[in-house]
Design a protein around this nucleic acid. Structure first.
Lengths: 332, 332
DNA sequence: ATGAAAGCGCTAACAT
DNA sequence: ATGTTAGCGCTTTCAT
């Protein structure tokens, strides 16, 4: 691979001049510059950003941490992030933590080692201390969907509000009386907020006792499938699932066991995955603008990168209740 | 951030010795080594792989190119790739081409600039010439699901065999007589192979005429939904869809138009997405081991990286027919 | 076993 | 406008 010296030699100039010309800096006469550009093309030159970063301290790398890229929610956010960063020529360093804290921490270290300029962080497990490594290394972080630290900006969907809207519908329109909440780990931010929205709303509506049980499960399709039998034992008439994947799992169980939805069990999800509207009893759920969320996060990071002194901000996107058929109402 | 010189100074040794100690090379006495390791930890040192790569030519970066990370198929493969590479300490440079050739080419360039050691390539649009840039830069490539160039190894699901198995089932067990194939673009590799498997099998079974039409459509849920009305006009008794998304679209149309599945129309898909088993008439389809596919691709790349002289190989995973209810048979 | 020195490809002061 | 020099953080000969 041709390098900057080769070009310098060919053109009979100094490597520094080549660097200036290639980077569009001023201080190079037009004919020298055009000559340099021409031979660069001729030699198939392409700059080594890794070498440049050693001096400029700008690696052009952005870390993207997700709990699970096969979860459509995270995939969509990732795509939003990617769409923005690609245009700006940044490279994405993908870190799928598989929801395991130790893998996540391992990635945090790697990200620092690779001198990423910033991190878009989607984490359900990371703590404020976990993020100190970025503070030490002066790496910008944008927390997505989980404002782990006030030292960093966050962009979130308003989980609390989404849950409030959904539960209100469940109580007032769907008339649920024996509700079970199928949540993720109790520490997870989404779980905390949605559960709080749920409980606050029930309390407000004077039917706190309708929530007969809160189960903390692995928030996946499989998790929902496995937890569904519990619902029968509890004689629940409805279930509020932490996300659509779980809801889909529960729904699948119902189909296998001839449990009628919504007659025998009302199912509410969260996220509005594409599949949610495809199943035979379309799922009532909460729509979140995932792609936009990713875009906002990336834009915010870029803005903080070019303007390092900004103080952290908080961006919240409002979710949207999607009433379909799985809770016995269809107003669409 | 502490660097190798800081450690050297602290320990009163030469940077070279520190490098040797840190990299576990021999030629360092035990007490010096342990002292170096200790102060490295104390100083919170972490090596800069970018700087090291300048000399070693090993960036520790692997490119992962996907047409669309929000497509569960690619996401699962990506996860398989990630699971292997994470263990080996490689960093993944994610490139979502959004199915656009020019974005993909842009990424190809970036990957070369960043001196990735290898590329896991999932592309439906790239041509053999597009890959020449990797050849020039001596970058290893593994083609996934689309063996674009014989110069590189490929790991694929055996699309031909999967289609053969499925069609045989359709003819022998489901007794279809008026079959329509809903395929993707004629140039797409998956379409070519699955269609060939379909036609070869029908021919073998002496009922080539059962295939009354081949339609080339956009291979998405929406595409299936829109193409479904054609099926009625053609008076088809069955449809072989290029993938489950299309099949789900067709199924949705049937539900909306009171067409009974499988009585009036038998639907066969391909891919075995999670949703395939969730719908009210679970879909007969072909299961592909996506996660394993990704793992195999990553392992093969790693193996070629540590053994640069291997000749390209072709790995094919056998798909697995999933007989459910949408074709009128349920042997499960 | 350790040090000295050179250099990977690039950029940035400083000089001319 | 261009060249000179130094150096980013690391590894790797080659000496000692």
């Amino acid at each position: 691979m041709a390098n900057i010296k080769d070009i310098a030699k060919q053109c009979g100039v100094n490597p520094a001049t080549v660097s200036r010309a290639l980077n569009g800096q001023k201080g190079v006469s037009e004919n020298v510059r055009s000559n340099i550009l021409k031979t660069a093309r001729k030699l198939g030159y392409s700059k080594n950003p890794l070498a440049a970063s050693l001096i400029t301290k700008k690696s052009g790398l952005i870390g993207l941490v997700v709990p699970d890229i096969t979860n459509p929610y995270y995939a969509q956010v990732a795509k939003g992030v990617s769409s923005i960063l690609e245009k700006q020529g940044y490279a994405i360093f993908l870190c799928d933590s598989d929801r395991q804290p130790q893998i996540e921490r391992h990635y945090f270290e790697m990200l620092c080692n690779y001198r990423v300029e910033g991190v878009i962080l989607m984490s359900v497990t990371a703590t404020e201390e976990d993020l100190e490594i970025f503070l030490r290394n002066q790496i910008k972080v944008i927390c997505v969907d989980n404002p782990i630290s006030k030292k960093y900006s966050s962009v979130c969907n308003d989980n609390y509000q989404g849950a409030c809207d959904l539960i209100e519908h469940l109580v007032l329109s769907a008339k649920v009386r024996r509700l079970v909440a199928l949540m993720g780990t109790a520490e997870a931010n989404t779980t905390k907020q949605r559960l709080r929205g749920c409980i606050d709303t029930l309390t407000k509506l004077n039917c706190r006792e309708s929530l007969i049980e809160v189960l903390h499960i692995t928030p996946t399709y499989q998790g929902g499938l496995e937890a569904a039998s519990e619902l029968e034992k509890l004689n629940a008439d409805s279930v509020f699932c932490i996300n659509d994947s779980v809801a889909l799992g529960v729904f699948s169980y119902c189909q296998q066991h001839q449990i009628k939805v919504p007659q025998q069990l009302k199912i509410a999800g969260y996220d509005d995955l594409a599949e949610a509207s495809m199943i035979s009893v379309p799922l009532t759920t909460v729509h979140q603008r995932k792609y936009v969320l990713g875009q906002k996060a990336a834009s915010q990071l870029l803005s903080e990168l070019s303007n390092p002194l900004t103080t952290p901000i908080k961006i919240e996107l409002l979710p949207q209740l999607k009433i379909r058929k799985s809770c016995g109402e269809d107003l669409s």
